[in-house]
Design a protein around this nucleic acid. Structure first.
Length: 303
DNA sequence: TAGATACCTTATAG
DNA sequence: ACTATAAGGTATC
């Protein structure tokens, strides 16, 4: 067992672990106390709960990383050195202060940033992010998370850690090998064939979500719709929560409602044009940050 | 090309 | 208890 501490006190804009991993952008973290999503407004840092996920080591085998936030520190336990991986996965190097400063003073945005100060975007592994958001169609966040847990337990490689058994996120190969019936068995419903066929595309080397990286934003979004079960909204989620396109604004039901109520002039009829308008309203470069704050704020009962 | 509809499953509202 | 509704949409016609 290795242990480490990441100092958070010097981070611009601070950090809020609970808000970051329980805000519906990542479905790859679990609370060890099993109380995920229970107290959204929750006390400071979710009562310093422990969370765990898995990371890929250099030789390709998965390792468990367990973390908790206490005051200005992020403590971790793992079998590998997790400091750099956590900085990367939790975007601890983002200059949140500058990002908020660059966000326009528009209705709702200030309150949303205030409510979850320190919440950061995540950088999830691309395949897991892709499958998570294929599963997200017409689902509540608690059940999306439950689906990912079920997928891990049914198809993920077991990892022993600190006397317990955990499961890594399934590989493309394992989900491509699963039958549609297998995937329906774990509660995916009509998303089952989407997940299987998209996993096959990756496993067969026909399409790789990482190949979206480097393309101009709208082209990258179009590229990702080549997967099955991936429309523009899901593509935007993968771009924002995995591939680092911070300007991506997924137009989900919450944001559409927000546009109706607060930014009606941004409603342009098509996804593409409405997306352009709301991204501009949210400040362009970091518009996805604003979207994520608004989403979490409203969904958590902010107003 | 734009518009309507089916789709798994379950938590929640009434 | 029971039914209707909606949930971070997409594929298909």
């Amino acid at each position: 067992m290795e242990r480490g501490v990441v100092d958070l006190s010097s981070l611009s804009g601070g950090f809020d672990l609970q808000a970051t991993v329980e805000s519906g952008q990542s479905y790859l973290w679990d609370r060890t106390d099993g109380r995920m999503y229970e107290n959204r407004d929750g006390g400071a840092y979710g009562g310093t709960a422990w969370y765990w996920t898995t990371v890929r080591t250099d030789d390709g085998t998965p390792a468990v990383v367990r973390v908790r936030q206490t005051d200005g520190r992020l403590e971790w336990e793992s079998t590998v050195d997790a400091t750099d991986r956590l900085r990367h996965r939790l975007r601890l190097d983002d200059d949140l202060g500058a990002i908020e400063a660059a966000t326009p003073d528009r209705p709702l945005l200030g309150r949303a940033f205030d409510a979850y100060r320190g919440m950061r975007l995540v950088r999830d592994p691309s395949f897991a992010s892709l499958v998570s958001f294929i599963c997200s169609a017409q689902m509540r966040v608690g059940r999306i998370h439950g689906m990912q847990q079920a997928l891990r337990e049914a198809f993920g490689e077991p990892v022993t850690f600190d006397g317990g058994t955990y499961h890594a996120y399934p590989t493309p190969e394992s989900l491509a090998t699963a039958t549609e019936a297998d995937l329906r068995e774990v509660g995916l419903g009509y998303r089952a064939p989407y997940v299987k066929r998209s996993a096959e595309l990756v496993a067969d080397g026909e399409l790789d979500p990482d190949d979206a990286t480097g393309r101009p934003y709208e082209e990258a979004r179009e590229f990702l719709t080549g997967f099955v079960g991936v429309g523009q909204k899901v593509a935007d989620c993968v771009l924002l929560f995995s591939l680092g396109y911070l300007e991506a604004v997924p137009l989900d039901t919450w944001i559409r409602t927000t546009i109706e109520e607060y930014y009606p002039d941004c409603e342009r009829g098509s996804y593409e044009e409405t997306s352009r308008a709301i991204r501009e309203t949210f400040g362009g470069e970091y518009a996805g940050y604003a979207q994520t704050y608004v989403f979490h704020y409203l969904r958590s009962g902010g107003e």
